[in-house]
């Protein structure tokens, strides 16, 4: 670990100003990922600005039915919140499927969205990685493929985004509130994370020094019928090989509306718009679910070592659609 400075500010704008003057600095939330990366020499900030006490740690319902989650709300509090559990059960399920109790107590809502990939080559400074060192080359593409992307990858990077929460939020069309040197922004979460293209070192569209202050969940009464299904190498405490969020609204056996997110398949939490389109207005049957999943995954370009993930993603999505449709938890 390299020497670094640690600062606290009195408010968000103070924190933003502190970081704006230090190109090689970072905000510190729960630190559950950043501190690990500093130990591994992957992250080498000269300055850490602690923002844990600056943003709200409350979950509040707005008059129009939106729910605003402060960026400092710990993952464990968000997962346990009665309002979240009642209205957006998939959010709670996604959180509880991730990490461990201790980590969830420490990890923040904002930080969860900004965690880095767990690609083994990214985390190992002795192997080249374009995300860590632009232009160095990708070790993963000819290496260990198990956890890598099958959708939206590039020649430069085949990493996946590790967040469970982000997959649920993408399906729910959440909005991320930020504050930066240029003022405040509202960013649809579907636009927050990037595909790798030729700049895999940029995980998100955030500017340097731009801080997530809150996440807003839109009112979506039928989100009560939602589920997060995570498939991984063991029963607990592992990142998703594939995960699926399904929010489903049916009437008389017909899909009125549907939202689908996939995790573990791409550089960003994947919104399955193709599958949604294929399902809307059609019958809620296993055959249609399967056709929709296959339509979404037609664009999949797996690597030799993770070709199984295409079938796995399809079967997981079909199973989750069936479970939500049949009211199974």
């Amino acid at each position: 670990m390299r020497p670094f400075r640690y600062e606290r500010a009195n408010d968000v704008s103070g924190a933003v100003a502190l970081l704006a003057g230090t190109p090689n600095g970072a905000f510190l939330g729960g630190g559950t990922n950043l501190v690990d990366l500093m130990r591994l020499d992957v992250a080498r900030p000269e300055l850490l600005v602690d923002v844990r006490r600056l943003t709200s740690d409350r979950i509040e319902e707005l008059p129009d039915g939106r729910v605003r989650v402060g960026a400092a709300v710990p993952n464990s509090d968000l997962a346990a919140d009665p309002l979240i559990r009642a209205r957006y059960p998939a959010v709670s399920e996604a959180l509880l499927s991730g990490a461990s109790g201790q980590l969830r107590n420490l990890a923040t809502t904002g930080g969860n969205l900004l965690q880095r990939t767990r690609c083994v080559y990214f985390q190992n400074v002795s192997t080249p990685c374009n995300k860590r060192d632009p232009g160095a080359g990708c070790s993963a593409i000819d290496g260990h493929h198990w956890d890598l992307a099958i959708l939206g990858a590039s020649e430069a990077c085949v990493a996946t985004h590790p967040s469970d929460l982000a997959v649920a939020l993408v399906a729910l069309d959440a909005v991320v509130l930020t504050e930066g040197a240029d003022g405040e922004r509202r960013i649809p979460i579907t636009e927050l994370h990037r595909l790798p293209d030729r700049e895999p070192h940029r995980d998100t569209i955030l500017q340097h020094g731009e801080l997530i202050t809150a996440v807003e969940l839109p009112p979506l009464p039928w989100a009560t019928r939602s589920r997060y299904r995570k498939v991984r190498d063991r029963a607990s405490y592992a990142f998703a090989l594939v995960s699926a969020v399904v929010v489903l609204d049916t009437a008389d056996g017909v899909v009125r509306d549907v939202r689908i997110g996939l995790g573990g398949v791409a550089h960003r939490p994947w919104r399955a718009l193709v599958a949604e389109q294929a399902l809307r207005g059609g019958p809620a049957t296993e055959e249609r679910f399967r056709q929709a999943a296959e339509a979404e995954l037609a664009a999949a370009r797996p690597l030799p070592g993770n070709a199984f993930k295409v079938r796995l993603a399809r079967n997981t999505l079909v199973r989750t659609l069936l479970d939500v449709n049949e009211g199974r938890r």
Binding site: V120, Y121, N124, S126, T127, S139, D142, G143, H144
Partner: peptide, 8 residues
């Protein structure tokens, strides 16, 4: 990983 001769 045989390229790096290392457990990754």
């Amino acid at each position: 990983d045989p390229r790096f001769a290392q457990v990754v």
